[in-house]
């Protein structure tokens, strides 16, 4: 004997129930993950480019390029807008992206655990497709989050950084990354991040519904390349500062 229930497809009249309907579905949440993921990827890229200025050292006036860049970020919009307002808009946006990304991750994880139930397999599962990266998305994400919190305390607010000087990015970075434990923390985080991207930057294409035998392999290349660029770039900075190559 069967009992069936009908999914009301046409009932999503108001925009709230419409959007709500979509983003409460698992596929909708995955879509959210992918979109926020893209935002985060772009941020990482931009952030790396900015940070690479650390290699440019100081200009003729003895001002560090990276500090000028930090200053530039704050004076975005020139005198048209109050100082830092653009940056703050941007920060709010970025925070929102992180929050949504993490919320979706948490909610999906909850659902998956529920669907999985208590039943575990006795014999060790012989996985053929999952790799270390895809299996560690959740823990990797948590590590990234923890890193981020420390990172903000360290280089944005300076709480974790005794030698912190407001607006002196160069000084701050060198100050903290020459402390081995901090440097190591950064390196670990970069590893976690690289793995996260290795799967994430591939996976987002599936989530956004883009798959085709013609270009499927390119998705993998893209993910590898992206993970590599971010990893090598960031690690280069950490090592360069740690080893005193930039000081």
């Amino acid at each position: 004997m069967t009992t069936t229930r009908r999914v009301k497809v046409h009932d999503r009249q108001g925009w709230r129930s419409w959007l709500g309907g979509f983003f409460s579905s698992s596929i909708g949440l995955k879509w959210l993950m992918a979109l926020t993921g893209i935002g985060l990827l772009l941020y990482l890229l931009a952030h790396l480019l900015g940070n690479l200025k650390i290699f440019l050292g100081a200009n003729a006036l003895g001002e560090y390029e990276i500090d000028l860049y930090a200053e530039a970020l704050r004076s975005l919009g020139g005198d048209l807008v109050p100082r830092q307002s653009i940056l703050w808009l941007f920060r709010i946006g970025l925070t929102a992206i992180f929050v949504l990304h993490i919320y979706a991750a948490a909610e999906l994880t909850r659902r998956n655990v529920a669907a999985r139930g208590r039943g575990r397999y006795e014999a060790k599962r012989q996985y053929e497709a999952v790799n270390y990266a895809s299996r560690t998305m959740r823990w990797g994400g948590v590590i990234i989050l923890l890193f981020l919190l420390y990172h903000l305390a360290d280089l944005t607010f300076g709480w974790a950084n005794p030698d912190f000087v407001y607006l002196a990015a160069y000084n701050n970075v060198t100050a903290s990354l020459t402390r081995p434990p901090v440097a190591i923390l950064y390196l670990v985080a970069q590893a976690a991040l690289a793995l996260h991207i290795y799967h994430g930057a591939w996976s987002l294409f599936q989530s956004l519904g883009s798959a085709n035998a013609r270009y499927n392999i390119l998705r993998r290349y893209f993910a590898v390349a992206f993970a590599a660029v971010i990893f090598i770039g960031n690690v280069a900075i950490v090592l360069a500062v740690w080893t005193g190559w930039v000081s």
Binding site: I27, G28, K30, L108, N112, E128, S134, Q206, S207, G209
Partner: peptide, 30 residues
């Protein structure tokens, strides 16, 4: 549960059905 794009299903499938179809489903759902 939801799909994290692990790809295990495709490997286990006795008819080797491709996970590309999952992407198409995601697209149609949006």
């Amino acid at each position: 549960g939801s799909c994290t794009n692990y790809g295990e299903c495709e490997k286990a499938c006795p008819k080797s059905i491709s996970i590309d179809f999952i992407a198409l489903m995601n697209r149609d759902y949006v």
